[in-house]
């Protein structure tokens, strides 16, 4: 039994190396003076500086941040009210709605992108910020809903009723009692939405216009052309952002337990 446990631990370590070695190499070469990612020639921050000199890249980053911020805000509103309403009220065919909401979480992105593109063409909505944001909300808000529902599952029903017994209107009870209780889930749902939106490539590829290319689209275009240390630098920034988001939301989850 001990031998089994030791080999499991070793295997886990091997898989972790498999996960992190490529990322470490990518990050390492973002500080390398050599243009080609082959040998270590010396430390530089040149590639980070070159991100800011690249107007197209900065524009794409701005687009991404605009899209992620608006999508997250609207996803949080839509997801929180949605989860709360389905929890609180008797809704006909609730199972069906639940399933429909979760489809965007699990459906292959290419199908989602293509079907939304067809829709936008049919309703003659010109591709641009609006279409990207609509698409992003569609796959972000289910994640907010899941986070809220998980938190609602542990809700003490008497909490809200006590507030109402003490004379609070439903709206006040919601604001003063429920929103504070749901806050950790709201924040972690928002962080998830923001990361998802910032990273998304495929759905955006179908729903963006030439003028509203997001950062992943720009990176994708350049990656296909070949290696470029500026890409390593911007990837490192992305990885750093992701790591901090995961750490923050884990911390929140633990504190809310």
């Amino acid at each position: 039994m001990k031998a089994v446990n030791t080999s499991l631990a070793i295997w886990t370590a091997v898989v972790m190396v498999f996960f992190y070695l490529p990322i470490a190499i990518l990050v390492g070469f973002s500080f390398n003076t050599s243009r080609l990612n082959i040998l270590w020639e010396g430390f530089t921050l040149e590639w980070y500086a070159s991100i800011w000199r690249d107007a197209v890249l900065v524009r794409a980053l701005e687009n991404s941040l605009i899209v992620a911020a608006i999508s997250t805000l609207l996803s949080v509103v839509l997801g929180t009210t949605g989860a709360w309403m389905l929890y609180r009220y008797r809704v006909p065919a609730v199972r069906l709605w639940q399933t429909l909401v979760f489809i965007p979480m699990i459906i292959p992105e290419v199908i989602m992108g293509v079907s939304l593109l067809i829709l936008f063409v049919v309703i003659q909505l010109e591709l641009g910020f609006a279409t990207i944001i609509i698409s992003h909300i569609t796959f972000c808000f289910p994640f907010v809903m899941v986070a809220i529902e998980a938190r609602l599952a542990g809700l003490d029903a008497s909490l809200e009723e006590a507030a109402m017994d003490l004379g609070a209107t439903p709206a006040v009870a919601f604001r003063k009692v429920l929103v504070p209780y749901l806050m950790p889930a709201i924040v972690s749902g928002a962080l998830m939405s923001f990361t998802l939106s910032l990273d998304e490539l495929i759905v955006t590829y179908f729903t963006a216009s030439a003028g509203t290319r997001t950062l992943p689209l720009e990176i994708f275009g350049r990656v296909k052309k070949g290696l470029d240390p500026t890409l390593n630098a911007i990837s490192t920034v992305f990885i750093l952002a992701t790591v901090s988001v995961v750490l923050i939301s884990e911390l929140l989850k633990r504190r809310s337990r």
Binding site: T12, M16, F19, Y20, P22, I23, I25, L26, F29, L36, N37, I38, T195, L198, D199, L201, P216, I219, F220, V223, G226, L227, L231, N232, S235, F238, I239, T242, V243, V245, V246, L247, E250
Partner: peptide, 29 residues
Amino acid sequence: LLMLVMIPFWTSFLIRTYAWMTILKSEGL
């Protein structure tokens, strides 16, 4: 360990794929 699995789970696959490109290219690492 869970955290160590969560980080790649949330990191853009585009970036992670690019990392392998760096390694596998014929003039690569």
